[in-house]
Nucleic acid binder design. Structure first.
Lengths: 343, 343
DNA sequence: TTGTAAGCGTTATCAG
DNA sequence: CTGATAACGCTTACAA
């Protein structure tokens, strides 16, 4: 029997006012912590509210205030992608951004978007949120185009966009890649190849290659790029690049892959071909995904500080909402040494 | 200079009414698809709305309607746990539930909660959401107590609770465990041990042990449980259980672990001790976490259908909200054969 | 088929 | 320090 559940009679600030023997507006002020309310009154109101189990209706409050106290987070996926196959990196980012928003007193609205019938960014116009954090795969060009064309006045920041003219936050890729490369150099790997791309829409990949190249230059060594084939899963790109590297017969003893999934693919391929890691070849990735801890050998990698990442995204957005200047947009990274480079 | 951004003048349904030459209520009805509105009028209104770039203010609408069209999802973490260390299983569940809610036309509010200063479930009283999905670690007893004590009338469903008297949805653990065990039996593993627990608050673990035990019984074999030590990370529990198993000297050729992280720990320990997987010993886990695909060898496992999981959670909650009977609460599972069992 | 008007439950302004 | 009173922008009886 489908019957609309009868709505329980709602307790309003009026009820609390009556119970506390004050006016309704006093209740509102007392509960909001308005300093003009005297301590005894505040206590009386608080007590009455507690007794009646009163809670403010946020919709009414937001309607009146004009602000929502809510941020929206949109996670862009590959079209048709199952939610379980989303790169855990983005989930970590999502979690950290949620935490940061909560810490700032904001509620968070989350949505996963992957195609034109899904794209939706009018959170502000509908008064659902005060601003928007867009994170996710660079590869979904249509999604980034969509968000780039939102009406002027839309407050939004992003992570992962293929363009630089949005308000972005990203890892300190240059330092990270340099760190990774130096780590290998110090461990006596000298013929280090970078698996990556200079033509990918992923700005990050380019920045990481540059960090690698700088570190090599500084050591008086020749940087070398093994280009990935586009349109394949990251793992497969890494695997094939490693295969080509081995087959080319060129001497190499180190691989710096511009992301962990490529590094894991390369690792598998090397092992399958009898190349010993870390003895014959060292491998370092970038991103710090969890799966790297489970590979064999576990993957040495560069990991961004996720907590800072979430905080920067949220703070940058809030600054934009309040018409202030945004500050830092680079997330610090650290080297996580595991088994794929020798001690 | 921190200046409150001047709010742009809002376009209301009144403006649209004026532009279309109709009354405000007609605009509301036309845009809401009320069948009593004539086609020409609807078109005129739609056109005016489009031109003015009008979007309804959801707060006003919700205030009037009394419903929010929003569901809250709370992800319970271990106290102090970094968001990047959350079991990806829960992230997958979160993603799937979000997708299901969207498909039903609901917006989703997400929050991560891990301790008493964080716990908050009064979404309905504050009119922030119509109901609540609580998912996450069984181990945070305080959290489950908190949600169990929410006021009557709170609509909520959960995944992971240590108790059976909540409205829950979970994997078909019995079938899954049976499936896993049969898979090993068919591959000529006969001395199969279960790594798990009968005393853990995790109901799931008990159900999985039972599925395993039934399959063994049916094959005329003796089930055997290697009990995990409580209070340790799952991986460590698996590792130690495997170590004890080897050291005990008892003959065994198969391990069914009640979750993937234990299975991965066991896998590492076996390999480290020179036990060959899958030749000497087969290993099967449960949950289908991504990292299982990267271990060496990759882990054979039982994976729940995440999409169905999300749908069941959402549908059960919506049924509760509408005062209907809930239906299915068991999520079907499938066997994913990878390298940790022989062909 | 459309218009009129009454709220929904707050917060903010303005007196006192 | 506190109390009236007007919005906030929509949906939905009730009338026409």
């Amino acid at each position: 029997m489908t019957r609309t559940a009868k709505r329980p009679p709602r307790i309003t600030s009026f009820d609390v006012a009556e119970a506390a023997g004050v006016s309704q507006s006093t209740v509102s002020r007392a509960l909001a912590g308005d300093p003009s309310i005297s301590e005894p009154t505040r206590l009386r109101v608080a007590e009455a509210a507690r007794k009646l189990n009163y809670q403010v209706d946020e919709n009414a409050a937001r309607l009146r205030r004009g602000r929502t106290g809510t941020l929206a987070i949109v996670l862009i996926c590959r079209p048709g992608q199952d939610r379980k196959d989303i790169n855990p990196f983005y989930y970590s980012l999502l979690g950290s951004a949620c935490a940061a928003a909560s810490a700032r007193g904001y509620e968070v609205l989350v949505s996963f978007q992957d195609g034109p019938d899904n794209f939706w960014g009018h959170y502000q116009e509908r008064r659902k949120a005060d601003g928007l954090i867009v994170i996710g795969t660079t590869s979904n060009a249509a999604a980034w185009d969509y968000f780039g064309q939102l009406p002027e006045g839309t407050h939004w920041v992003c992570w992962g966009a293929p363009r630089d003219d949005f308000a972005w936050v990203r890892s300190d890729n240059l330092s990270g890649a340099t760190l990774a490369t130096r780590h290998m150099l110090v461990r006596d790997y000298t013929r280090i190849v970078c698996i990556g791309s200079l033509t990918s829409p992923q700005r990050q990949f380019i920045e990481r290659y540059e960090g690698y190249a700088q570190a090599m230059d500084n050591a008086g060594l020749e940087p070398r790029l093994e280009h990935i084939e586009s349109g394949l899963p990251r793992e497969e790109q890494g695997r094939r690049a490693a295969a080509r590297l081995v087959e080319s017969g060129a001497a190499f003893d180190g691989i710096f892959a511009v992301c962990d999934e490529m590094a894991l693919g390369a690792l598998k391929e090397l092992t399958a071909r009898g190349v010993r890691v870390p003895e014959d070849v060292g491998v370092v990735g970038f991103d710090g995904i969890r799966a790297g801890a489970w590979s064999s050998p576990p993957l040495t990698t560069i990991e961004p500080d996720f907590q800072t990442a979430g905080t920067l995204l949220v703070d940058r957005l809030l600054a934009m909402i309040n018409g202030e200047e945004g500050s830092a947009r680079r997330v610090p990274v650290r080297l996580v040494v595991r088994g794929s480079t020798r001690a």
